[in-house]
């Protein structure tokens, strides 16, 4: 009887498939060759022709990291509002939604990596350059709060063009809001791993991207606060080629290590294992 009831009721509570297998083409950032998402997924989104790293859609990033079937998405319906009536913003949101299939520039939830439970957020550069407005700020804040309640570590996969100027000052305040949630999570003795991916800039760099206990970065990733062009205009001098790359930051002591995609999952898994408390609550 019990089994019957469970089978019967399951379709009502089942969440939407977190990883829909829609296929589309992506162009290599370096050699410009087009490849399908499914082909790239099998290759860690590394270009088969030139070896360059593609920017990874947030959902694919989580799928690559998590144990199969372990990801449970949170606040999946939360989305942006054009409350300032900012020129072009409504259109940008609509276009971003239809081109990515996402409702927000960040995907959040809980998962396991090689058996280790953690909370995860991943930003999606295809969605208005993963800029941080109210929706992104709120989802990340709620994730840190959930992780604090459940005693879970957080893995953040960062990338962003910075604060979302179309939401004015309210977006700047998201930096403080997320920082507060990250601080409380830290005060609870919990681990936060920040993984910097291309590009991580502006307000994101000046907040949660740089607040991890451990800061990882992908190779040849752009990480910086001010934009290169702004700096060149201000100072009137050309900058070295490797300026604001993850290698540059490693050299200056601002990241712990550069991790390639082959070893990312095992590195994250090892860090999670080293910080296991035994008090993680998965639901």
């Amino acid at each position: 009887m019990k089994i019957h009831v469970r089978l019967f009721s399951r379709p009502k509570v089942k969440a939407a498939e977190p990883f829909p297998d829609t296929d589309y083409e992506l162009k290599c950032p370096k050699c410009k060759t087009a490849h399908t998402r499914s082909e790239l997924y099998e290759r860690n989104f590394v270009c088969p022709d030139c070896g360059a790293y593609f920017r990874i859609p947030a959902r694919d990033r989580i799928r690559m990291l998590c144990d199969e079937g372990s990801f449970v998405e949170t606040n999946a319906k939360l989305t942006s509002v054009d409350f300032l009536d900012f020129p072009g913003y409504s259109d940008k949101i609509t276009k971003a939604k239809s081109s990515t299939g996402e409702l927000c520039a960040v995907v959040t939830g809980t998962m396991r990596v090689e058996g280790h439970p953690c909370a995860v957020f991943a930003l999606d550069s295809r969605f208005i350059m993963a800029s941080m407005g109210s929706a992104v700020g709120e989802k990340i804040t709620r994730l840190f709060e959930l992780a604090t309640r459940r005693g879970l570590p957080v893995l953040g996969v960062l990338c962003s063009g910075g604060a979302r100027m179309q939401e004015g000052i309210v977006s700047l305040m998201q930096m403080a809001k997320c920082s507060g949630a990250a601080r409380r999570h830290s005060d609870a003795g919990l681990l936060y791993i920040a993984l910097l991916t291309d590009p991580t800039t502006g307000g994101m760099t000046a907040s949660i991207a740089m607040q991890g206990d451990i800061t990882l970065a992908e190779p040849k990733t752009l990480v910086g606060f001010a934009g290169r062009r702004v700096i060149e205009q201000t100072t009137g001098s050309a900058l070295p080629g490797n300026f604001q790359t993850s290698e540059f930051l490693l050299d200056r002591g601002f990241v712990d290590m550069i991790v390639d995609r082959e070893s990312l999952r095992s590195t994250v898994s090892l860090l999670l294992r080293q910080h296991t408390t035994g008090k993680e609550k998965e639901a």
Binding site: A206, M210, I231, F248
Partner: peptide
Amino acid sequence: PGAEGEERGQGQAIA
């Protein structure tokens, strides 16, 4: 917004 500020972690300092 300058090269020295970036080298010395402007973003990290604010964060």
